[in-house]
Computed example of a mutant assay.
Amino acid sequence: MKIIFHIGMPKTGTTSLQYYLFKNKNNLMPNGFIYEPEIFTNQENSLGSTNHNDFGMNIINNPDKTIHTLLDRLKFHDNKSNYYIISAEVAVVYFSEKHIKFLYDNLHEHDIEIVLYIRRQDDFIESFYKTCIQCGMCFSIDEAIKLCNPDYDDIVKKWKQNKNIKVHVVKYKSSKTIKNFFDIYGMKIDDDLSEYKLNLSLGTNHIEIVSLIKRNTNILFNFLEPEMFIQGLQAPKSYRIFSLAERKNIMKNYEQSNNTISKQFFDGEPLFEPLPETDSNSIGHPLLDSDEIIKILEKYILYCIKSNKHINNLIKYIDNSGDFDEAFYRKKYLCGRKEIYKPIEHFARFGMYNKLLPNEDFDADKIYNLYPELKNTGIPPYILYTVLKIIKNKETSD
């Protein structure tokens, strides 16, 4: 049996391809393509079998068990004309040459083909960094580059450890990932693949805001929640993280690597579209002043408050902040009332909207005096206080 090992890169439509393979696996099997990521899913801590799967991390954490599972499945499906597909983009991020050699040594009886999608490096780094921020990581762009360095020549050399390994390098084109995969194997699929387009990216200014929230609050959210919040948010502009000069410098660093890949796989034709000739107003680092940050952050916090699924996060944030005095609140506002909610939950759900105070020293008028234009917006004074504290913490840390 032949093995197709799709290793990414990340941010090249990988999730869409995995989703397509999973949703259509029963139709693909008669055509000789077998895809069963659920076999490698760690049920206790799973990324999910619909698209992402645990094969890559399991090779790192439990290699013997994982390879034995794979060998059993290959034996079960034994047919030399069939392709067994493994798609795990973490492989290109985390696999060392030792992990790759371990795979090849155990799969030496099978033909192995590697599929690598490549994307112009400045675009890739920008998109990869955004995803890292959306997933809850807080680090710099330089750290993102170290985690997944898009030196495609180096990657190909690492994976093509012997002449029997066949490598396919595919240029990433938005919405073409699925079609281009099956083009390699001469299989035609439907042209309309819009339903498989996943992982829509946030704008750079939104990413900066999400990063600011994560660095300065205890409010937590999963991968999709920033997107749900930001839909419909009116942001000043759509920015690129890198200026044109920075993008040119990035591409200069990878020029030799790209030339090698071009000659090896594409008869010397340019790998990517050239950079624009001039910068534009939509490129550059976003400059958000405190007023803009306040308006956007208060929308985020209000979103957390009003959504029942976020109320526990909000309560946890208020509790950890040290702003809430339970004895004061109970005595001043809840004396004699039947207690349906704990005082802190009552404040989070109802009290702050009615301008109840979280502690004896809280001065709502002082907060409104700082930003009088926001006094009649209906934003609770505690929310304004929280946003001001976030900004103050950011300015102190800077």
Rank of each mutant, 00 (worst) to 15 (best):
Ile305Lys: 12
Thr204Met: 03
Ser211Asp: 11
Phe242Pro: 01
Phe272Val: 15
Ser238Trp: 01
Glu255His: 11
Arg215Gln: 07
Leu202Glu: 09
Lys252Ala: 15
Glu246Arg: 02
Ala245Thr: 11
Val210Gln: 02
Leu288Ala: 05
Pro270Asn: 12
Lys237Asp: 07
Ala245Lys: 12
Asn218Cys: 00
Met187Asp: 01
Glu208Asn: 07
Pro236Phe: 03
Leu233Ala: 01
Ile184Thr: 09
Asn205Thr: 06
Asp267Leu: 08
Ile293Lys: 15
Cys304Ser: 03
Ser194Ala: 03
Ile283Ser: 15
Met251Lys: 07
Tyr185Met: 05
Glu208Arg: 03
Phe266Ser: 05
Pro270Tyr: 07
Cys304Gln: 02
Phe221Asp: 02
Glu292Tyr: 14
Gly186Ala: 09
Glu208Cys: 05
Tyr239Met: 05
Ile261Asp: 02
Asn308Cys: 06
Tyr196Glu: 00
Lys252Leu: 14
Glu225Leu: 08
Lys309Phe: 14
Phe223Asp: 10
Ile301Asn: 03
Asp183Ile: 03
Ile305Val: 14
Gln231Asn: 14
Ile241Glu: 06
Asn253Arg: 11
Asp267Gln: 06
Asn313Gly: 15
Asp267Met: 08
Thr204Gly: 01
Ser262Val: 05
Glu292Asp: 14
Ile296Glu: 08
Leu233Pro: 03
Leu288Phe: 09
Ile189Ala: 07
Asn258Phe: 10
Tyr196His: 00
Phe272Asn: 11
Phe182Arg: 13
Asp279Ala: 15
Leu287Gly: 15
Glu269Gln: 12
Glu277Met: 13
Asn222Cys: 07
Leu200Trp: 05
Asp279Met: 15
Asn312Tyr: 06
Glu273Ala: 15
Glu269Tyr: 07
Glu225His: 12
Lys306Ala: 12
Leu275His: 04
Leu302Met: 10
Lys214Pro: 00
Leu314Tyr: 02
Arg240Trp: 01
Lys295Arg: 15
Glu208His: 06
Leu297Lys: 10
Ile213His: 01
Asn258Asp: 07
Asn199Thr: 04
Ser201Gly: 03
Asp191Ala: 10
Pro226Asn: 03
Ile209Val: 11
Tyr300Ala: 00
Tyr196Val: 11
Tyr185Ile: 13
Pro274Gln: 13
Asp289Ser: 14
Leu288Val: 04
Phe181Ala: 00
Ser194Ile: 01
Tyr196Asp: 04
Ser307Trp: 11
Thr204Phe: 00
Leu271Arg: 01
Phe181Ser: 01
Ala235Asn: 08
Glu292Ala: 15
Asn216Ala: 00
Asp190Phe: 04
Lys263Asn: 09
Tyr254Thr: 13
Pro274Thr: 01
Ile250Thr: 04
Gly232Glu: 05
Phe223Arg: 02
Asn216Ser: 01
Ser243Ile: 06
Ile301Leu: 14
